[in-house]
Each structure stands twice: as C-alpha cells, then as structure tokens.
Amino acid sequence: MTTIATKSMATHAKERRTRFDSKALLALPGLLFMTVAFAVPVILLIIESFAGPQGPTLDGYRKVLADNYYVGIIWNSIKLALITTIATLLIGYPAAFALARARGVLQVVLFALIFLPLTVSIIVKTFGISIMMGRGGIINWLLINLGFIERPMRLVFTEFNLYFGMINVFLPFMILPLYSSMRMLDTRLADAAASLGAGPLYAFTRVTLPLTMPGVIAGVSLVFSITVASYVTPSLLIGDRFMTMSQVMAKAYLNIRDFQLGASMAVVMLVIASIIVVAASYLARAPKEGR
C-alpha cells in the first residue's frame, strides 16, 4: 500500500515536472523583455558605480555611505517609505476588508472611491494637495474656523504635507493586494472561530490575519519598494527641504553630472528595496513550508 502510494506519487511528481517545463516557455517573452529592459541597464549601472578615472574604485560608495549628508538622505528615503508603508497598511487593511465584504451598490461606490484616484496623474493629485494645504486653502480655513489657530499656518512643503500626499498617492497600491487576499477568505471561517468560543480579537489574530498575510506581504513589499524610490511626489510636496535618494540621483545625473554618485546611490536603493522584497517573499512562503 505504502510502496504503491510512494511510487504513484513519484510518477506524478515526474509528470508534473515535465509538464511544468513546457509551460515555463510561456514566460519567455516576458523574460526576454525584462532582460533587455531591466537586467542589462542594472548591470551597466553597477559597472558604472565602480568605474573610476583610473580603473575600478569604491569612491562612489565611500561618498554615499560615509558622508553624513548622503547617509541622512538614505535615512530620509527609508523613513519616508516605512512611514508611508505602515500608514497605508493601517488605513488600507480595514478598507480592503470593507471592500471585500461589501455587496451591490456599496461595493461599486467603495471601489470607485479607492481606485478612481489611480486614474488621476500623480502631478495633478500632488498639486491639488498643495492647493488644499495652501495658506488660503481649505485646511487652514477649517483650522481657523474651528478655533484651533488664529492665523493661517504653513503646511505646504512640510513633512506633514509630504506624508499626507504620499499616503494618498500610494494607498490604492496597498489596498489592491490586500483586497484580493481578503476576497479569497471564506467568511464562514470567522463564523467557525466564533462558534468555537473565539472572541473577535482572537479570531482576527489567529484566523483572519494569518490567512490574509500573503496580501499584507505583497502590499508591504509593493508600497515600500515604490515609495523608497519615489521622486515626483516628494519633489512636488516638499522639494529640497527633504532630500530623497531619487532626488540625489536626479541631481547627480542632470545637474552636477556626477554619474558615479548617481549610480552608487541607485545601487544602494536597489539593495534596500531588494532586501525588503526578498524578506517579504520569504516570510510569505515560510508558514506554508512549515506544514
């Protein structure tokens, strides 16, 4: 019995492996495109980051990783990405849950509210936020009329303005993967947990959260890797007061023409984003392997 089972399983696995090979061909066009559009430029970038006037050098990295000015900028980018990721996760998780449970007209309305902003250009959105945050803008008007402040306060080009805008722009990117993992969640699992005496908090931490973890991990790696590299939104919302890695790179390439500085910064950013994505994917996979 056991031998038969093992044998048939082995044959099955073999069949699956051969079948998988032919299906892997379907990834070929995408693979080719990514090789040309992503791998080749990245390799060139890495080469450039080491290229000095007299052969290979670590000068670029020495500058980026030892100079307090640049370290501060790297930290700015990481802080910006972390705060945006955590805030969008905290706001996006319940929103995604509501979206997944909503039915009919309510679902359409919620969908529109969350995803319509995606169709609006980031530039339009960030300018809109600047208008709202201006001295004559609605936020100052509200604060004055509610009696919190006497004279309009400066909001434009502050960190508050920056985070407000970042969360606004990147929230849909968090909600989307969360939503799809919640859609697949069987609502009766929560009922089953309750019928077994689990209170709402226990049921959430032991059932809902672990089962939606793939969505959390996908959302976190997506939002972190795009916010750590974000350029347009921070430039428009806070400008030079809060330099990010992307702004340094842009300046290095476009203004001061220090290509090695730009390339080194780019590689550092790539490494940070890769660490987050790889760590997240590992976390996503680990519980399944444990079983």
């Binding site: 947990a193 019928s195 077994l196 005496g197 079983r291």
Partner: peptide, 19 residues
Amino acid sequence: AAHRRNIGVVFQNYALFPH
C-alpha cells in the same frame, strides 16, 4: 454573542482553518 454561547457548528463545507 456567538462566541459566548457554547453552541457548536458543523458548516456546510466544514470551514476548516486551511492554515
């Protein structure tokens, strides 16, 4: 509330916790 009733339920598709 359901979780304070001590009433067991066997659901139609069992609703076992897949994780």
